[in-house]
Design a protein around this nucleic acid. Structure first.
Lengths: 144, 144
DNA sequence: GAGATATAATTGACGAGTCAATGATTGATT
DNA sequence: AATCAATCATTGACTCGTCAATTATATCTC
């Protein structure tokens, strides 16, 4: 039951293009990289996290996490400390400066999301979410 | 009418993760980069194209196009010649070697698509396509 | 026809994420 | 207790795509 590749190809191409544009445009508007914003936001929601936990949430490589955190630390948006209970782990926390940076982005971020999903009904957003979830579950099986 | 950012954030994160995994896994299976496969496939469908036309189809930067074509040319999968009617343009064509490379990938590619869209109904694939199209239309408005 | 403008391709420098190798710490086995 | 394996973080080398600057050609305008 092989699907029409031509259409699938186009959909995948569009998906990649969307991602790139989202990242580019988000940074242009808010002044902070989309990935680093997501990191900060995740840390804001969940207080203290190890880098592994961040990695699992953001689904990017550990090496990338380390490098982003280095940048966020230089700007004093996060602090990092070894976990005393397990010295292999680094515990990351957002700082007040980090939180206020998040807050400053809020308007631009909301505006951005509104434009990105302009014309979408709640139903469609939910539908997209479901389909994307299904896709990512499938990608998790790909390596076997 | 700001949407629930938490869910949207997650959807966008998943989208990016899907794209990366698709590219990684496709190359691992077929031995050719996903983007370069798409280039070859586009050239196969449409015979002769300028690099600008390729760029518009693949929606990646011109610079990236130039570099991918350099690689494809080194492998003799494509040939490039200046357009005699307009010497600014380079006309790209797929070679027989390029075509047979495409053919060799076919089985792996179909297998890959089947796994990626495993459990999707035709209806769902169509739905995804529509939503993605809507999204990309919105991203095109973002810069204004 | 000469000079300004536009278009196509190329190059270099950059940021992002991946993989593989390394280091440091912890846990398990004997 | 000593070795061996597993886990977490870091680093270097790499690919990919972007942007900005450059070159070459074509088109427009006076």
């Amino acid at each position: 039951m092989t699907k029409s590749f031509k259409e699938i190809k186009q959909t995948l191409l569009m998906l990649q293009s969307i991602d790139r544009r989202v990242a580019q445009n988000f940074e242009k508007r808010t002044g902070i990289s989309f990935t680093r914003y997501e990191m900060l936001h995740t840390l804001f929601e969940r207080a203290q996290l190890s880098q592994i936990e961040l990695q699992q949430t953001l689904k990017i490589d550990q090496a990338a996490i380390t490098r982003h955190l280095k940048i966020l630390e230089e700007k004093n948006f996060v602090v990092r400390n070894r976990n005393k209970q397990n010295n292999r782990e680094v515990i990351v926390e957002i700082t007040d400066a980090g939180i206020s940076t998040l807050e400053n982005c809020d308007l631009d971020k909301n505006q951005f999301i509104d434009e990105l999903f302009n014309g979408f009904t709640d139903q469609e957003i939910k539908q997209l979410q479901i389909l994307v979830k299904k896709l990512i579950d499938n990608t998790e099986m790909l390596n076997s």
